[in-house]
Design a protein around this nucleic acid. Sequence first.
DNA 1: GCAGCCGTTGCACATTTGTGCAAAGCCAAA
DNA 2: TTTGGCTTTGCACAAATGTGCAACGGCTGC
Lengths: 339, 339
Amino acid sequence: MSELKPGRSFVSAQQVAELAGVSRSAVSRTFTDGASVSETTRKKVLEAAETLGYHVNHLARSLIHEDSGIVCLIGADINTPYHSRLLDAITRRLQAINRVAMVINTSGDSDSVDAALRQTLNYRANATVVLSGTPPASLINTCINSGQHVILINRDDHLDGPENITVDNAAAAREAFHMLHRAGCRRIAVVSSQAGTPSLVARERAFEAAAGEAGLSVTITRAGPTGYGAGFEAGRLLLSGSDRPDAAFCVTDLLACGFMDAARVEFGMNVPAELCVVGFDDIEQAGWASYQLTTFRQPIDQVADHITKLLDSDDPEPAQGGRVCFHADPVWRKTVRPK
Amino acid sequence: MSELKPGRSFVSAQQVAELAGVSRSAVSRTFTDGASVSETTRKKVLEAAETLGYHVNHLARSLIHEDSGIVCLIGADINTPYHSRLLDAITRRLQAINRVAMVINTSGDSDSVDAALRQTLNYRANATVVLSGTPPASLINTCINSGQHVILINRDDHLDGPENITVDNAAAAREAFHMLHRAGCRRIAVVSSQAGTPSLVARERAFEAAAGEAGLSVTITRAGPTGYGAGFEAGRLLLSGSDRPDAAFCVTDLLACGFMDAARVEFGMNVPAELCVVGFDDIEQAGWASYQLTTFRQPIDQVADHITKLLDSDDPEPAQGGRVCFHADPVWRKTVRPK
DNA sequence: GCAGCCGTTGCACATTTGTGCAAAGCCAAA
DNA sequence: TTTGGCTTTGCACAAATGTGCAACGGCTGC
């Protein structure tokens, strides 16, 4: 008879079996879908499990199956509106398909992406979703060789091997330019950040190229990290000069909010009469009455759905790897003049 | 000789041992701190592990030690500024003490807190931190009996057993009243939500009580869930009447932002000249130039530090269970008239 | 050269679970 | 009653790891 002191550690199937008067196998089969147990023993086992507070040890279960049920989400800046919404959408869907999310926060030191990917491997995660940051290729290969899914979001590097989910930043940025151009804007600024993320760079480049095709040149300002403060600072710099821009494409809604606040509070400007603004992401604040920001909606639900499809083993027709690209649709609000 | 096809599954210590020409024990000891291995075999093992892409299986390791290194974070609305910041702070610190965070999102169905707590037990989590929601007492007891830490944040129920971390909502709400009262406000509204969370209720009650002591009565409006939209709606309702309030205590910054926007955009009111506003949480947006909201700062870092202290086994003097209460300090900005 | 000591190594067992295989039990039909 | 078939059950092994114990090797001091 095993020790039965209830106060210290987890209950094992052995203890349940002894209390129920059956073999440990019977306990195991009771908690395994599709296994053969008679109704009477099942009942005895469930009752014993209930009184002892037994819960199947998924760690041990994962030793046998190759499926741990764990999905690692690696990302930085998860306190940011866009990232936290993405995290919310993904975790919710993962639970719906019986996976559990392990979140690794790579804000802070730069080499922590390495450590994060190693954790992923240590815990035999079923898949790894990289929301931001640049993981070293060697570790990615280890993940894939070990049979893990690796899903990169908004990374244009690492072409082969991992599954890539991207947003068509270039198309949206071109569309942003034409929105502003059609509104009559000719002195257009681009407000970006010093982060240099592939997404942000793609938006800058495509916007600049579209402007070039229309015979316009743009000035790009990168006043700090991708956030409200950098947008505000960019506004202060750009609008204090003699030839103010009449429009700005902010590569992020947070930058746009900061930029608009600088324009209105520091310079008393009227948006969109004197200054048109277009953002990117469609964070919640973009819809607030103080901003009413015209922007592009990140296809967060589509991205999360696609991840689900990649990982759901019960899906009749699971999506296959490679590259997927979703479109970011414009959201018309009030920071661009109509017509 | 084990199968050595690299393309399918995880590498085991056995395979590393065979390649390095040592026993499996030597491999295990190489990756165990403080175990006795000679420098030469350690080197051979590390080299073999590197070429094969070996990573210690933490699941198997956790079978032996009782320490899985996993900490479950259970919460809803993680896309909200306050919750996402809390999540960010906690995950960051957990990694610093070699724990990994498993996030369970309980937005959605109401009974998902049960399921979340069961997951916690299934994965033998070292500890469970409940950020929001009301877990059933029976499951909490199972967690504690199994040797888990259970940490409840901002829950005033469940007094014994789990460790409680709370914020002194009542003191802050009283202070909020006196700030408004001293500013000369006499027709004060309380803007709350239909959520009925213990924190929110505590703020409402304490504010109302403080007003009562000063001989004032307040009207409480609950126009929807705890968010910008409900604050906006509350503003619309409260300010359209004939006797407008001259101040509002919003139990959340999000509500305050919505309320202010309604006041300014829908009614053209001037804050703080005609209307003083006090919020709670000190989310990032409270500091934006458009709001400059006077509010109370959630002691997020203190809470996260305390959790760390509770869980860090290396800590020389770990904090002991029971109840801890942190103070929410006022942050003076510009939505309350000075003097 | 030999005894003693210390660092290193391998064997075997422990952790918890799922499952193939064979035995056993049960029910019905002949 | 016996036989056949089907369900249920227990044994034993598998998964990957940590570790106590004993053995082994090498080094040093006498």
